[in-house]
Lab assay of single mutants.
Amino acid sequence: ELVLALYDYQEKSPREVTMKKGDILTLLNSTNKDWWKVEVNDRQGFVPASYVKKLD
């Protein structure tokens, strides 16, 4: 499943990933309501769920 980055996000820990507004990311896990695991540029990590939106 793919998600769209709604905002820029700068990683604050090694478990997170940086994304730019408009990026298309692969959603790996959305079981946590606050932090979703995504893959971007061959890196996996977490981003705030409120910063991304699922693409239909």
Rank of each mutant, 00 (worst) to 15 (best):
E1Q: 14
E1T: 15
E1V: 14
E1D: 11
E1W: 13
L2H: 11
L2T: 09
L2S: 08
L2I: 09
L2F: 14
V3G: 14
V3W: 10
L4K: 08
L4C: 10
L4Q: 11
L4M: 13
A5Q: 02
L6W: 04
L6Y: 04
L6C: 08
Y7H: 13
Y7N: 07
Y7T: 07
Y7R: 15
Y7P: 00
Y9T: 01
Q10G: 08
Q10I: 15
Q10K: 12
Q10N: 14
Q10L: 13
E11T: 08
E11F: 05
E11Q: 13
E11G: 15
E11N: 07
K12H: 09
S13L: 09
S13I: 04
S13P: 05
P14G: 10
P14E: 13
R15L: 14
R15T: 11
R15Q: 12
R15F: 11
E16F: 06
E16M: 05
E16H: 06
E16P: 04
T18D: 04
T18N: 07
T18S: 15
M19I: 15
M19A: 02
K20V: 10
K21R: 11
K21S: 08
K21C: 10
K21V: 08
K21M: 08
D23N: 07
D23I: 04
I24E: 03
I24N: 03
L25E: 00
L25Y: 10
L25R: 01
T26P: 15
L27T: 02
L28N: 03
N29D: 15
N29V: 08
N29C: 12
N29A: 09
S30Y: 07
S30P: 07
T31I: 09
N32P: 05
N32C: 10
K33E: 10
K33N: 12
K33Q: 14
K33S: 12
K33F: 08
D34N: 13
W35R: 03
W36T: 03
W36F: 08
W36G: 00
W36P: 01
W36I: 05
W36S: 03
W36N: 01
V38N: 00
E39T: 10
E39S: 13
E39N: 08
V40D: 11
V40I: 15
N41W: 10
N41V: 12
D42Q: 12
D42M: 12
D42G: 15
R43L: 07
R43N: 07
R43I: 07
Q44I: 14
Q44Y: 07
Q44M: 12
G45L: 05
F46W: 15
F46K: 03
F46N: 05
F46G: 02
F46H: 05
F46A: 02
V47E: 00
V47A: 04
V47S: 00
P48E: 03
P48S: 02
P48R: 03
A49N: 03
A49C: 07
S50F: 09
S50I: 09
S50G: 12
S50C: 14
S50R: 14
S50L: 10
Y51F: 13
Y51H: 15
Y51S: 13
V52W: 01
V52Y: 00
V52R: 00
K53Y: 09
K53M: 14
K53W: 08
K53F: 08
K54V: 13
K54M: 12
K54F: 12
K54Y: 10
K54C: 10
L55A: 05
L55K: 04
D56C: 14
D56R: 11
